[in-house]
Amino acid sequence: MPLILVKDGQLDRSATAEALRSFLEGFLRAARWDLKVAVKTVDPAAAGESAETAEVLADFDGADKELLLERGAEVLKALEHLSLKALRLDTIFQERIHLDCCGYRALRLEELRMTARVAAERVKTSKQPFRLNPMSPRERRVVHLALKDMPGIRTESEGAGEERQVVILPAEASAAH
């Protein structure tokens, strides 16, 4: 099943949204879960600087939403992984596609930014590095972006695979290297 979703180095948002909708609707029919999915596209240029990088968003709602959201939205994340594989997109385009359910992940990302800011304030005062819990590549990116303009600190990722975590360091530590 060849899919052409990237044209001239740009993600073809409407073709991607259509392919994603088709996959997810087929999935819901086969699974017989009581859920509806709405897929929309976002033009990053029109969305402004503060917006997420998501260009194609699928949002689920319905009686079976707990199935997706239980245990830290484990099933939603699994479905996102399978969707990205089914679309056969390069890694750089994968982070522009988000699956969500009733705004759960948008809320989770906001919590993550708040946690990052609180931890960064602590590093500024204590001058000691602070390690956040291991996170997915997407979550780490959110943390790096949330803190990139904060004075007095810098961020790095350390560790491999599932254990990779963001470390917040005092800014002057970089001058010591």
Binding site: A31, E70, V75, K77, A78, H81
Partner: peptide, 21 residues
């Protein structure tokens, strides 16, 4: 199967949720 078995694991997670239902 996927890298480090991630795709197979994702399919099993989905089946797990279907098992509950």
């Amino acid at each position: 199967i996927g890298r480090q078995g991630r795709t197979a694991k994702a399919m099993r997670t989905i089946l797990g949720a279907s098992s509950v239902k």
